[in-house]
Write a protein that binds this DNA or RNA. Structure first.
Lengths: 230, 230
DNA sequence: CGACCATTTGATATGGATCAAGCGATGTGG
DNA sequence: CCACATCGCTTGATCCATATCAAATGGTCG
């Protein structure tokens, strides 16, 4: 997929996504800044695969613009989306040597790619890097555990949780721009597309949200949503 | 809960559980052996709490005998069991400084307890220990991801997955001794106790399993169960 | 404008939840 | 040692939330 691990000094780190959201070139903790420094920029088009299940987990990725979904498909075709990754998020972190899920760009996306072996080499000498890998894995664990709690809830609760999650992550106030389709949301929440759609309508009718366009949601009454968030 | 971090040379590590399953005092990788060497043995009675959600995550635990469940409760009382831990399993591994779920002994259990700060101190000097923490967290992540895939399946599929999981983990051939109640299984699988019970009956009627007693299951036809495992 | 695709809305079906009762094992007190 | 209470589990009847099947609407792009 990509051989280079070395630094790319010529690359412009600051990229601008369609909706204007992007990741500043600023360094976070050591692991983050290592990725920023050494990562190679790559672009993926809408619905393009970034890696597939069972492929060797050779790289680590950081979203710079766009959105990525990770998912698994059961043998009968049911798809479960494990997570959506927004600008700033790191994904592809598998502890084994193969990916246990696939990743695709939801919209045209730019990501920084870094070799896992390079990170692990760094981790051997730099204790902070090693700790960062652990922290990152732990955050992911936390996220999946939270997802489990969402999956046992009612449809309204799941959708409310989803909207609150997206609002919190996009930090754009009460207006959310959803980069993913209804089908993606359905597969993330373990519902059908029809149920997701109907639930949006119900929430709109109860004045909890407004839906000016299908990809744009306004949270009108967080209290109602939070109560549903259980 | 426990102050000692020092070694307990006098303690007999080899404990024998009621059903005979136990953990040999042999060391696995460095992290495992550190826990074996430095861990303090503790006993918990049936349904006794080991730690609660939001308590500081000061310790790491290894099951020596018995079984432990971890769970979260939603504000309306719904309980989701996140995992069952059998002899040999390590639990209590939270990356943040507070537990994000509670843990209870399902049956009378013996666990080794070690201070997290002690492990982290070791990890600072011993690179293998640090790597072990990461691996362990990654395994847990993998486990929760698999759990998500179970939660989107039908009742029959969930129960079949559960039985195959338990059979694989207890490594006791086709006979499984279930340490947990139907309610525990239901709360693990996101079903009701009635549905779990009915599903057992269905699987028995289709000759996939036998249920000589309610806590004892015999896998009669793994092909059928595996097909359900999707 | 017309085709296509995503989304919404409507009608009906169904898997699992809920409500309720029965059953079997285990333990306790008389 | 037996009668009875208790607890965990099973079985039965009914209900309901969400899935499924089907059609209409709307937005986008050539």
């Amino acid at each position: 997929m990509l051989n280079q691990t070395r630094l790319h000094p010529a690359v412009t780190r600051q990229t601008v996504a369609r909706n204007g959201r992007t990741v500043p070139p600023v360094a976070g903790h050591p692991l983050e800044s290592a990725i920023e420094m050494m990562g190679a920029p790559m672009s993926f088009g809408r619905n393009e695969e970034i890696f597939g299940e069972n492929e060797p987990a050779e790289y680590l990725y950081k979203v710079m613009s766009g959105t990525v979904r990770t998912y698994k498909v059961l043998n009968d075709g049911r798809r479960q989306i494990g997570a959506f990754y927004l600008p700033g998020d790191i994904f592809g972190l598998d502890v084994g040597d193969e990916h246990t899920y696939s990743a695709e760009a939801i919209a045209d996306s730019k990501v920084l790619v870094i070799k896992r072996s390079a990170v692990e080499r760094l981790a051997n000498s730099d204790h902070e890097i090693a700790h960062g890998m652990w922290t990152l894995t732990g955050r992911e664990l936390q996220r999946v555990q939270d997802h489990v709690m969402v999956l046992i809830k009612t449809a309204q609760e799941r959708v409310a949780s989803f909207l609150l999650e997206m609002a919190a992550r996009s930090r754009t106030g009460n207006e959310i721009e959803l980069p993913m389709s209804r089908q993606d949301i359905a597969d993330y929440l373990g519902l059908t597309i029809e149920t997701v759609s109907r639930t949006f309508t119900q929430l709109e009718n109860s004045a909890a949200i407004a839906v000016p366009s299908s990809r744009r949601i306004v949270l009108r009454n967080r209290a109602v949503l939070s109560r549903l968030n259980a």
